[in-house]
Design a protein around this nucleic acid. Structure first.
Lengths: 216, 216, 216, 216
DNA sequence: TATGAATGAGCCTTCATTCAT
DNA sequence: AATGAATGAAGGCTCATTCAT
């Protein structure tokens, strides 16, 4: 068994904390407001088709105000990514706290992942679609959140193998990609589907199939 | 067993046929040239960052010429999608010809899928990344190729269930998504990875895992 | 001999006086601070490229504070001009006090002119470059300081002609422009030169050449 | 005596020629049209207050067309400068051709200088005012045309000194600045004056004064 | 068919100015 | 008097698309 490396056990990351501390509550609200508006518009119109002025209008601020909180339009997308990532990591940390059984860890990870995306469709669209639109963002995406996520899965798989519960001939890294890919596909399908079913409910099904496939 | 619904058994679709018949061989070449150039640039710079003029230059034609073959910049992306899709369906049709074993059908489908993407990295990038950048394209994507593909998988799974080889409590549609998601993830990982391994080699591994998970 | 027309013999101009009287010493300091900061930034970045916020930061005050002392960004430039002009006129008045020899008056005028510019490079840049950037400022400039200055030179030249020391066939107004132009060029050259020589030292040389040219 | 170093004796400079050759007459006209319009607007409104769209409208083209011929708004100003400089150098070359008397050379230089500026008031304004508005342009200005010009004057002065016609105790470089400054001032005065007198007529007067001042 | 110069709508971003605190 | 967050008009520049040749 190992400690899940992708979970910061200390306090919240500096960036997020640093940004909030020096600003008033009012200011923090405005930043959030803009980020929420950007998420909504990027999701519904696409990053390139959404205009900064639209984001500002949606947030109820002037166009120039956006640039008091963000450096550029790109920075909006990156900030959505980073903020969501930090929150996601925190949620995962809490979900895994005290859980040592590797299969249960996989179950929790999958559930938290789909739950979070399933709670905010706009956010899910930005993550599943917009953030992947150019290699620039894609690489940023894949080199951070994805890595942490895959490592967490991989470690749980390796633990299960060590415990003799999973077949050893499958590479844990490969298995992690398979599981992540399946979950990711569930999310993308959910976004594109017109039916409004509960995304999180599929977490267990996916893990069941995966665990069955990995079991000796 | 079922007829593989996603494979057109009739003549080529009207759009492609209509365009090719009245035009000279030379013209067909130019259209191909432009499409190839667009694939390359969309893949390397992203759809919105690639300019029509760049595509034209890459293809060795004037900017205006692009509009003799395509209606708009969007049409370029759509045409890449459609052409590739038709070729892919044809390849799948040939790969499945005479194969009745459902598991083998799954294996062939996965192999053809990854083989095709693995042969042309630029094309793979356009399919895995660019085509998904806006819900506009994404919906077109998911309503056609993806449907055909998922149906083909679903049917094979259902056949395997009917034959008693796969567990019946798993919905074939759901299982199809899982398998497709895993394959899709392999493709996306391959694109983002710096290592130049053979993508197609992973087809069997993914199917192995899937089949094991589905087997009674 | 004549009274040097460009020297105000009455009280200080209303604008400056009006502003200073009702305000505290502390306030006057802040106004000076802002003006000094504006001079520095206008000189180093150019009027249009220097932002009001930069000026405020340089002065150590908030952006809004600038507008408590000045009506607009233009007003900053105009105020620099007016303040410097008033100080320059006062300096000239003192330099010419009790000097009746017309050639010596020219010498003193030239010296004071170049001395003042030579003491503050930033101020010199604003005067020689920024103030002339648009006809709006240029006309203001040429209709006031320049006129006073040219009149002072012209009168001294006329005096010298009356005294039989300068050739009479040269128009005093024309001669004044020539001398001013030569001095102005010295100032502009000094600003643009990388060498840090004493600008004021050239005053005598210029006047020597001029006097020699004018002498019968 | 020496050959006036700043005058290219060969064919026109490559840049100007190179730009015109590959383009059609029609194209060359359009570039000229835009440059003429820019000169007019920069002169009348100031560089920063003139909008690119205004320049385009004045030239009778669309806004985007400006960017087919120039890289940026700055490039417009630089191009005005460079083109005028090349033309001016060519005019000077022709004016000095076959003239060996140094004083006559000075006379011709001064005449050509003021004649050219006096022929196109807008161009004169751009040169005397707009081009000097920021150190960026100013340095470009002073490091090229001004240098060539000052060198030409300096060389003529040195020749006159060698010939025993000018006093030797005055540095030729210094004398050149004085003469240039006087001419420059004439140009600036002419621009700012409301009277529409002939600028070129002052060339001789300035040179007379200068020569008299330099003569032994 | 092919060209590529021309178009002009559109958008990100800046920054002088205001005003609630 | 002082602040600095907020404003929003303005403008430089891009680029998909057209059309005369």
């Amino acid at each position: 068994m190992n400690d899940c490396s992708f979970i910061p056990t200390g306090p919240m990351p500096a960036t997020t904390a640093a940004r909030r501390t020096p600003r008033s509550q009012h200011t923090g609200d405005k930043r959030d407001l803009i980020l929420k508006a950007a998420t909504k518009l990027f999701a519904r119109r696409g990053f390139f088709n959404a205009q900064v002025a639209d984001v500002a209008r949606e947030a109820g601020v002037a166009a120039g105000t956006v640039y008091l909180y963000f450096q550029s339009k790109d920075d909006l997308l990156i900030s959505i990514f980073e903020r969501t990532m930090h929150e996601g990591l925190e949620a995962a940390r809490q979900a895994l706290a005290g859980v040592s059984d590797p299969v249960e860890r996989l179950r929790r990870l999958a559930l938290v992942h789909l739950e979070r995306l399933g709670q905010d469709r706009d956010l899910a669209v930005v993550f599943q679609v917009e953030l992947r639109q150019s290699t620039k963002f894609m690489e940023r995406f894949s080199s951070t959140l994805l890595q942490d996520y895959l490592h967490a899965i991989r470690d749980a798989v390796a633990d299960a193998q060590t415990a003799g519960r999973f077949r050893r001939e499958v590479s844990p890294t490969f298995a992690a990609k398979v599981l992540y890919g399946a979950l990711d596909e569930m999310a993308t399908n959910w976004i594109l589907s017109r039916r409004r079913y509960a995304l999180a409910a599929q977490a267990n099904e996916v893990v069941d199939l995966f665990v069955n496939g990995m079991t000796t």
